[in-house]
Amino acid sequence: MQVILPDKTVVTRGDDPVPIESILHDLGILPASVIVLKNGKVVPEDVIASGDDQIRIIRIAHGG
């Protein structure tokens, strides 16, 4: 599966089913600081991703 990070870089991961929260944990990202899109739809972080899923992580905390 493809994981698009907040800075738009793309990371490829294995296809095994995994909760998105675990992906965030591996990347050192706090779930509360991001919104996660699975195949273009906003989802809770404990949703499972696998196979050809595309996960996009959007950072929500901005100054200003």
């Binding site: 509360a32 919104i35 929500i60 905390a61």
Partner: peptide, 11 residues
């Protein structure tokens, strides 16, 4: 929460 605000804007 900040996260709810952003989720609201998405929906």
């Amino acid at each position: 929460t900040e996260k709810e605000v952003v989720a609201y804007l998405f929906v």
